[in-house]
Design a protein around this nucleic acid. Sequence first.
DNA 1: GATGAATGAGCGTTCATTCAT
DNA 2: CATGAATGAACGCTCATTCAT
Lengths: 197, 197, 197, 197
Amino acid sequence: MEKPDKREEIVRAALALIAVHGFHGAPMAMIANRAGVGTGTIYLYFENKDVLIAELYKDIEDRIYPHIMEGYMPEKPVRERFIHLGTASLRYFIENPLDFSYLEQFHNSPYGVAFRRDSVLGQKRNCNVYRELLEVGVDGLTIKNLPFVILFALAFGPLLTVAREHILGFISLDDSLIARTVEACWDGIRRYGAVCG
Amino acid sequence: MEKPDKREEIVRAALALIAVHGFHGAPMAMIANRAGVGTGTIYLYFENKDVLIAELYKDIEDRIYPHIMEGYMPEKPVRERFIHLGTASLRYFIENPLDFSYLEQFHNSPYGVAFRRDSVLGQKRNCNVYRELLEVGVDGLTIKNLPFVILFALAFGPLLTVAREHILGFISLDDSLIARTVEACWDGIRRYGAVCG
Amino acid sequence: MEKPDKREEIVRAALALIAVHGFHGAPMAMIANRAGVGTGTIYLYFENKDVLIAELYKDIEDRIYPHIMEGYMPEKPVRERFIHLGTASLRYFIENPLDFSYLEQFHNSPYGVAFRRDSVLGQKRNCNVYRELLEVGVDGLTIKNLPFVILFALAFGPLLTVAREHILGFISLDDSLIARTVEACWDGIRRYGAVCG
Amino acid sequence: MEKPDKREEIVRAALALIAVHGFHGAPMAMIANRAGVGTGTIYLYFENKDVLIAELYKDIEDRIYPHIMEGYMPEKPVRERFIHLGTASLRYFIENPLDFSYLEQFHNSPYGVAFRRDSVLGQKRNCNVYRELLEVGVDGLTIKNLPFVILFALAFGPLLTVAREHILGFISLDDSLIARTVEACWDGIRRYGAVCG
DNA sequence: GATGAATGAGCGTTCATTCAT
DNA sequence: CATGAATGAACGCTCATTCAT
């Protein structure tokens, strides 16, 4: 029972504090205190604050991936797969507001730049799923022929903004609204050539 | 000749430093130094650092507004007006990367929250132009019937992301790409029901 | 009257504390406190603790030089000049025990090594007087033909040891003892070949 | 085979690290690591770091004594015995630079003071050999009539300085240079009264 | 108004020491 | 005996802010 190991506690405390107060609003001593450990203990698990911040980021990524891949069916049409990914991503964010806030803080900071975020949503694995899907769509003439980075912005940029508004309480997303938002994102990237033929 | 008054110099220095190094990478002494004034002088014009940061934000807004309104013709159709606003906004960002970086820093920080950013692009006046346009579109059945906040996210969220990628050098926007990106944003919010009738 | 400027106070406090408690027994806060200034004030005058330590060393050197050169007569025979320098050096040390203790601490520490102490007593100017005198003596066959470093050790090494013993209270030096000690140092380096005619 | 017992390993590791990096450049954890033991293990053998440092000092002394006494012949004349002791001491230092560095660090530190080092070279036993020899010389009118502490400084102070210069690489001692240096030390303390008679 | 020297609370980090295993 | 994870006091240093000039 006494097993929520210390690293876990530290990560949890750091996430909660940084998400709410920002990087410099969350001193190491405060994190340690909230985690119920001594200050020095943090340095047993993380070389310094920068490393802690970066590891936190990776931890979140590792949690997101399985979530969005659950129920993902590669054999389905591009549109359906896109809806799945978009919906799952948005859902994850509004269900894990701390993770979302942290991610946003991280991206807009010197730390994030060091990570060469090729995209906004994620790094290695996550990003690849999105990228692959968009490329298949472009090749199959289902999606507009635009650079990946722009497609990505069109497809997922709005989801980030919407998630933020929801978390800040400026809007309340329900299943219907989520669905319609993701559909609208699809409208942004889909091709219209043969639509009415 | 002795007139680039001190407040102006301070604002300019603060913007340049914060945009590049972040809020906590730009100490007051460094800002004063760059502005060519004494440290104490800053406090003659701004109550404290928080106030300076907030005023900086408002200054930028005040610069953006005239820029996007130049050539704006209220009597044109919604679609054209949207293209105008989107293009002008995106152009402003990539032509004023310091302003853009500052804005992003501001939004993702405790400072930004204090400002109750109803929207991402702007505050009072700016936002109102966007809001009014979107509302007209919804009423006229040209734009999807979604909450303003979501429409806003669909319409301008991608522009922010794309501007960032451009500024970071991950993509190079030219006139054509800008045009196609803004068009795609329009596709995201436009209504399709009667399109082919 | 209110003019014992802050840098001076800091130097004095640092010297007193480090001489007695050693480098790591004299925290910056303690030095500041003793100097009657704020902690941050030290950093107005010295970039960091290492720099403070090094500057302190140079300050002491600058004080020693005029002292040992007072009454020094370059036209006198080597022996007399040696007695003058040795006596003046030893006198300075026992009259300024803080300076002496500091010097010893400095030499036996990473800081001192960075200074490439070519000799034990001093650095640039000081050392040169000693060196020049010894070289003249060697050339004139008055002093043993040994490497400078060894001559220096024979001539001044005992003075350091004796000064330390005096300061620690294990011996009490008076004028006579000082004179006989310096004479003995001279015996160590002088040449004996033609002594008895 | 499993016998280079832990205490021995700890002492060896501590000596190597402190000699090179100084007292505060050698944390307990680093010493333990180098010794191949757990941090806590050190505290099984030494009450705390101060005690470890002091014991280390005593260990070195215990190693020096047999070395300088090897071949020492009490029945020989004072001069020859002095040359023997001086040569053996200097040799030991340059052959065991770690021991020498440690000794110097120790002497110039709060730790050393606590030891009331009556002399520079050593403590009880070592010192006694030196002391006894010098006293015999004084009584026999071979050595100058000066307080023991001063004679000691004249006789062995230069050897310390010379050893340091050698270890730091500012000079390279060979057999001849060692012999001439020790002879010069003797010149410093010997009596000259009847020399030419 | 304008200055910048002065301040000290607060930060990130280290490390001697303890103690449950 | 032996361990090394855990601790937290203490350190060097920064920087927003003040105020005498």
